[in-house]
């Protein structure tokens, strides 16, 4: 046996379990000799040069030792197989949004609590940086765990693990049990709730958060005089809106009562804001000292903006309501 064959065999078997190494080494060695002999055509007195050429050809036919070793070892040659792949996609679809949302929320909270003078740029930096990291770690953990399961679990356990994701025992009755399709997709009210939470924070944000703390010694943006009624009323409106969104989230279906409630609440809020802007100094007057600007310049603009948003919002709401209605199956009598 030449050193080439010896090296080749060593490279194959070192990747294999110990108890099969000797046996496979012997077999491959014998096979390589047979293959080389066949190439020499039974010529017992072949020259060393042609013998070496025959050996090389035999080695090349068996090919890359690492690939041959992979074929001997029965571990799968893929990370996650078809059996567990649905579990993988399911987990990703559920886990990643949850991880991303909680990472953003937790990091925002920690940043605000731990930083002596929080500012919007630093907060976004911390949220995005750590959020991306959290999502990447989640992807890595799910992938590694499933790749391990692919290699460790016996077939029937894999099938069991995959059952909830693939519904292997699906029957027509599942169609009957299936809840009606949501008319209001979940992300919509959830996004509204997030926006409402941000709006609720508005009276409490210090001006330093947006790098203008020097204007009023780190006060809020709103006129402190409004705390005696206007700001609590504003927060009350937000609570009402949050309840409406919670209703939309749990029900998932449009109703005329829902549409009416939404329109009434929206218009009432617009009227409230209009009165506030026209009768009060909404922003802290201290912000305008030294800028030379009139404190009142923004009020008209704010009212126009409020009604533009409100009208646009109602149009969108009515349109969504009609669309959902038109997609409903015609009820049989």
């Amino acid at each position: 046996m030449s050193s080439l064959t010896e090296k080749y065999v060593a490279q194959v078997v070192r990747r294999l379990p110990e108890n099969s190494q000797a046996d496979i080494a012997r077999e491959i060695t014998a096979t390589l000799s047979d293959m080389a002999d066949a190439r020499l055509g039974g010529d017992e007195y072949a020259s060393p040069a042609s013998a070496e050429a025959a050996e090389r050809a035999a080695l090349e036919e068996l090919g890359d030792p690492s690939r041959l070793a992979l074929r001997y070892s029965e571990s799968p040659r893929y990370l996650i197989g078809p059996e567990l792949f649905p579990v993988f996609t399911r987990l990703m679809a559920w886990l990643l949004p949850i991880v991303a949302a909680s990472a953003l929320a937790v990091n925002a909270l920690v940043y605000v609590l731990a930083t002596p003078e929080p500012a919007v740029g630093g907060m976004i930096g911390v949220m995005v940086g750590n959020g991306v990291l959290a999502v990447l770690i989640a992807i890595a953990v799910v992938t590694v765990l499933l790749a391990l399961a692919e290699r460790i679990l016996p077939e029937k356990d894999k099938a069991q693990l995959a059952a909830p994701a693939t519904r292997s025992r699906w029957s027509v009755d599942d169609l009957v049990r299936e809840r009606p399709v949501r008319e209001i997709a979940r992300p919509e009210p959830v996004a509204s709730l997030v926006i409402l939470a941000v709006m609720a924070l508005l009276p409490f944000l210090p001006t330093s958060f947006f790098y203008v703390g020097h204007l009023n010694d780190d006060g809020g943006f709103l006129n402190p005089a409004l705390w005696d009624g206007w700001i609590p009323a504003y927060l009350g409106f937000l609570v009402v809106f949050a309840l409406i969104e919670a209703w939309r989230l749990t029900s998932g279906r449009w109703s005329t009562a829902m549409l009416a409630t939404m329109i009434v609440a929206d218009v009432a809020f617009a009227v409230f804001l209009t009165i506030a802007f026209l009768s009060q100094e909404v922003l802290d007057p201290a912000l305008f000292i030294g800028t030379g600007g009139e404190p009142g310049w923004y009020q008209g603009a704010a009212v126009v903006l409020i009604w533009a948003v409100t009208v646009w919002d109602q149009v969108a709401t009515v349109k969504a309501y009609r669309e959902a209605r038109s997609l409903r199956p015609v009820e049989r009598r």
């Binding site: 077999e27 293959m35 066949a38």
Partner: peptide, 19 residues
């Protein structure tokens, strides 16, 4: 044995690689 099997299969028309 392995190589004989490979030849038998090849002669019968089964092109299968040794590896």
């Amino acid at each position: 044995y392995g190589y004989a099997l490979l030849s038998t299969l090849a002669d019968a028309g089964f092109q299968i690689e040794a590896n």
